[in-house]
């Protein structure tokens, strides 16, 4: 990396980071307020749910319970409290799971990050590869085959693909586990343990990734085809460069710009997708927790998950800004 482009990258990254208090924090605050208020608008609160579960109908007990939980105060006061607590990483207490929401999420978050993170990386890498390949041989047999497969991936719902993969790889071939994130009852350690985790990760991560592979590949293919006709590619050919340098150096870096924009907004959708995938694969992550929390009407947990998701989306956008600054020298804030 030459000194001046390194310096430019650092300066621009610094600017992106400095903008966080002005752009990212207000957005996050707005997301917190909206998540909090939305769930409070739904009739019935946690006390109603718990009361129905334990068949409690004594009005004064219920009122006392509400008072103990602070649910009888004005919604503004509750919101303010909530925000102050969040600043201390206190997400409240779930009376349904009977534990602090922070530790409940703390148990589930790593699994989801592992799942979504793997799917994200796999989708980007395979998406770029497939896009480049079909852009390389536009109109050829390979391109048509890839395009057909991609269209298929693009149009089938994830739960269906998930069930199909389970049927093939877990039931028929018996290569991979049916679900869960690790083999229970086995006391594995070291490499065996990591291997076991990876075997469990393959199917859910691939299922979550498939749709996005298709999205990325179609996007990369389209931008490769567009970049192909640019004057600077003709210049590169006229210099006698070989095809690989032209495709991977001159075309790809330009073709990646639209992808970075799309990939950043994907985090939210992937967390949403994780709800389905984690349910299908019995994966102990935040998505399944969200699903359970809806059924149990655990608003404390749900609000926390919404807030966290917003946090991830905002963080992803900052990362995308950083990546774009490094890929595209023309960006000046």
């Amino acid at each position: 990396m030459k000194f001046s482009s390194l310096r430019r990258g650092l300066v621009m990254s610094g600017r992106v980071l400095l903008s966080i208090p002005f752009r990212a924090l207000p957005t996050l605050l707005a997301a917190i307020v909206v998540s909090f208020l939305l769930l409070r608008l739904i009739p019935g609160d946690a006390v109603d749910v718990m009361a129905s579960q334990v068949a409690l109908s004594n009005e004064s007990d219920i009122a006392k319970w509400r008072h103990d939980l602070g649910l009888d105060r004005s919604i503004g006061e509750q919101l303010l409290d909530y925000i102050v607590n969040l600043a201390r990483l206190d997400f409240g207490y779930s009376h349904i799971y009977n534990m602090p929401v922070a530790s409940l999420i703390g148990e589930r978050l790593p699994s989801t990050c592992l799942l979504a993170g793997t799917a994200f990386v796999v989708a980007i890498i395979l998406g770029i590869l497939a896009g480049v390949i079909s852009g390389y041989a536009k109109g050829g047999a390979l391109d048509q085959l890839t395009s057909a497969v991609l269209l298929l991936l693009y149009s089938v719902p994830a739960f269906w693909t998930g069930l199909l993969l389970i049927e093939v790889f877990a039931v028929w071939l018996n290569w991979l586990p049916l679900g869960g994130s690790q083999s229970l009852g086995l006391d594995l350690s070291g490499a065996a343990r990591i291997g076991d985790r990876l075997r469990h990760l393959v199917l859910p991560a691939v299922t979550l990734a498939l749709f996005y592979i298709a999205v990325d590949a179609r996007l990369v293919r389209a931008s490769m085809l567009e970049v192909q006709n640019q004057d600077y590619i003709r210049t590169a050919i006229a210099k006698g460069l070989d095809r690989h340098t032209i495709v991977w150096k001159h075309m790809l870096r330009n073709a990646l710009l639209p992808l970075t924009a799309v990939a950043g907004n994907r985090i939210g959708a992937m967390l949403g997708g994780a709800v389905t995938i984690e349910t299908v694969f019995n994966w102990p992550g935040m998505g399944r927790l969200a699903f359970e929390a809806v059924l149990k009407r655990d608003f404390t947990v749900l609000t926390a998950i919404l807030v966290l998701s917003a946090f991830f989306v905002i963080a992803a956008n900052i990362i995308v800004d950083l990546i774009q600054v490094w890929i595209d020298p023309r960006i000046e804030h």
Partner: peptide, 12 residues
């Protein structure tokens, strides 16, 4: 070429 603004690759 005629147009030097498009003949060079903008990202290198």
């Amino acid at each position: 070429f005629q147009d030097p603004s498009t003949a060079l690759n903008p990202v290198w």
